[in-house]
Amino acid sequence: MLLIDCPYCGERPEPEFAYGGQAHVARPARPAEASDEAWADYLYFRRNTRGLHAERWRHIRGCGRFFNALRDTRTDHFLGTYKIGAPPPPLADT
């Protein structure tokens, strides 16, 4: 079980959280003009990084808020968490 450091509440056990997948996935600004490839990219294609992964979590059984985390998917070690809207750390493969 992971221990996750919610930026609002502090360290809590994993069952309090919901995973939200890869962070910083931007919806195409003009969906009607997006090509099929760009739209499929947005909907279905994730980096599935083996290494440092920027990802969303939600403290669903706590404060309810979304935040981002940087985790190494080879070890499940968290390097840190940061608030939504903050830029991804330079280490992240985004």
Partner: peptide
């Protein structure tokens, strides 16, 4: 498990 990972292990819960 809920999250993506390459560790070949998961949570006890």
């Amino acid at each position: 498990d809920a999250y993506t990972s390459y560790t070949q292990r998961g949570g006890l819960h």
